[in-house]
Design a protein around this nucleic acid. Structure first.
Length: 196
DNA sequence: CATTAGATCGTCT
DNA sequence: GACGATCTAATGA
């Protein structure tokens, strides 16, 4: 029974202040979001049914779930809940605390160090995580996760960019370390513009 | 600081 | 055909 066998909403705050380690780059997690499973969370990839796209979310907890979105971005999650149930914690932002020169090379567009991993797709690029890493074990694979000894103080808010029934996100499942410069700005969901 | 548009493609309707 | 757990560059206040 690992800590990851609990629902993502319980695991999420435990990750704050934890470390994500890939080769020589170390990231301190400062912002995450929880997503639940079938029928529980309209914003989740696993809301409707299990399928090829979201299969990893139903896999063993403590593994990595990476997905491709917006035609060009990859985001990283930690799979939670017991095997066969779907929930995951999206890694939204963090602070590079080691290997920062490597991270800078990977993110040439970022002009400030605080922006290196500020946002889920940015974080994934800075850590050189890819779709190939989907499903890998965070305890034994190239991508490692270490939980903090003592949980970091945190706040919660609505999730960013997530639509809900009627356009309103109903769940305050974004967890972040308040005041940290690497936490991404909250953006509420808004409908796409129409091309006249 | 705020808002806008464009990029780009797998999945779903 | 539309849209998404996004990001960047450009433009306006």
């Amino acid at each position: 029974m690992s800590v990851f066998e609990k629902p993502a909403t319980e695991v999420a705050p435990l990750l704050l202040g934890g470390l994500l380690i890939v080769d020589d780059v170390v990231l301190r997690i400062t912002e995450v979001e929880a997503y639940l499973g079938i029928g529980q969370d309209p914003g989740s990839h696993a809301y409707n049914r299990r399928g090829p796209k979201n299969n990893t979310m139903f896999g063993p907890p403590g593994h990595l779930y990476t997905y491709f979105t917006y035609g060009m971005h990859v985001c990283s999650n930690v799979v939670c809940s017991p095997l066969g149930e779907a929930s995951a914690v999206l890694l939204r932002a963090g602070e590079i605390i080691d290997g920062i020169e490597i991270a800078r090379m990977r993110r040439l567009t970022s002009r400030v160090d605080a922006d290196l991993a500020r946002g889920p797709a940015r974080l994934t690029v800075a850590m050189a995580i890819g779709l190939d890493d989907d499903g890998s074990d965070l305890a034994t694979s190239r991508v490692r996760l270490e939980l903090p000894d003592t949980p970091a103080p945190h706040e919660t808010s609505l999730r960013t960019g997530v639509s809900g029934p009627g356009g309103t996100e109903p769940f305050a499942w974004r967890y972040f370390i308040p005041g940290d410069p690497t936490v991404s700005p909250y953006k509420r969901w808004q409908p796409k513009k129409k091309t006249l």
